[in-house]
């Protein structure tokens, strides 16, 4: 329950922080941290323009997208405190429920019958497909390490005992950060600020959304960031007292947001056709983690 509140809190400022970092690095003052939130609220108040081509799917999809992310957030724990929902194998549910949302956003993009939105949809489907194995192998490795298969179980039972396991944690953080980038269509994989539809992923999918729906989608992006931030934070919280944990949580969220801002400021977008390879490389990294876990457990003889 507590994690839900914290994530909601983090989601309020996360994107703003990213934008703020980017402005600072490019020498501008930049908008306020809550500007994205204000945008969303403004969108909520607006009317909508619907394409003649679209049907009910198009109208339902943003809602389901949002709901799916919320469902995923319910599962995320906060240190020893369970998430809103917690059970054995809940990370499977986490990944799959996110996929449900993605499924809807893809078909809603295709529902517009546009020459561009399908492009984004295609990429979104492909990229997230490649990102998922990495996540599962990562979680599987930790499940193996800890002997638990729920988020909460894994995170509470995880102790970085040796130096080697710190390396594993770092790798895992890296993987999760990249996954978050992919899932949110951020910089090295996608440039949300580009002006060429041909090179966009997420943004081009929602070209036709407007009004409340668009607001919902934008806010969902914030939520998703905060959610991944929370996951990463959980790696470091472990069994420390709640006030420290709170500190760590927000610290991680801050660092995460600023990192994203920095990455976006200083790197260029990958070539679209190479994206798949990079994302797939994540699985390899996760495999490394897995072998690392095997080493820790002494299964490698």
């Amino acid at each position: 329950m507590i994690s839900l509140i914290l994530i909601l809190l983090a989601s309020l400022f996360f994107t703003g922080l990213v934008i703020w970092t980017k402005s600072i690095t490019s020498g501008r003052k930049g908008p306020g941290i809550f500007q994205p939130l204000k945008d969303v609220l403004r969108l909520f108040k607006k009317g909508a323009v619907y394409s003649k081509t679209t049907g009910i799917i198009f109208q339902v999809a943003p809602t389901i997208y949002f709901a799916s992310v919320m469902m995923a957030i319910f599962v995320v724990p906060f240190g020893q405190a369970r998430g809103f929902i917690s059970f054995e194998g809940d990370f499977v549910f986490f990944a799959y429920v996110l996929a449900t949302g993605k499924f809807f956003s893809i078909i809603s993009a295709l529902d517009t019958g546009s020459s561009f939105e399908g492009m984004g949809a295609s990429r979104e489907a492909l990229f997230s497909m490649f990102a998922e194995p990495a996540f599962f192998i990562l979680m599987g490795s930790f499940a193996l390490l800890t002997g638990h298969s729920s988020f909460q179980g894994i995170f509470t039972a995880m102790h970085f005992t040796t130096k080697f396991s710190y390396a594993l944690g770092a790798l895992a953080t890296f993987v999760l950060v990249i996954i978050a980038m992919v899932e949110n269509s951020r910089m090295p994989f996608d440039d949300p600020k580009t002006h060429l539809e041909l090179t966009m992923v997420h943004e081009v999918m929602i070209l036709d959304n407007s009004g409340f729906d668009l607001g919902l989608i934008l806010y969902t992006t914030n939520l998703k960031f905060a959610m991944y931030g929370a996951l990463i934070a959980n790696f470091f919280i472990g069994a420390i007292p709640w006030y420290l944990a709170l500190l760590v949580f927000f610290g991680v969220q801050f660092v995460f947001a600023i990192t994203i801002g920095l990455i976006e400021s200083f790197t260029a977008r990958f070539r679209m056709s190479h994206n798949a390879q990079y994302i797939f490389a994540l699985s390899s990294v996760s495999l490394l983690i897995f072998f690392g876990v095997l080493l820790v457990l002494g299964k490698f003889i």
């Binding site: 108040k45 607006k46 009317g47 909508a48 323009v49 619907y50 394409s51 003649k52 081509t53 679209t54 295709l110 517009t112 019958g113 546009s114 020459s115 561009f116 939105e117 399908g118 492009m119 949809a121 295609s122 990429r123 492909l126 539809e197 070209l207 036709d208 009004g211 409340f212 679209m272 056709s273 798949a276």
Partner: peptide, 30 residues
């Protein structure tokens, strides 16, 4: 709220037709 219906946003192109839609083969091209 007010709701308007119109053609699909064509990124500035004003005469899109159904053949310009993204097709199944293009969807799986990559």
């Amino acid at each position: 709220r007010p709701v308007v219906t119109g053609p699909t946003w064509g990124c500035g192109y004003l005469a899109p037709n159904s053949h310009m839609q993204y097709t199944a083969s293009s969807f799986i091209r990559s």
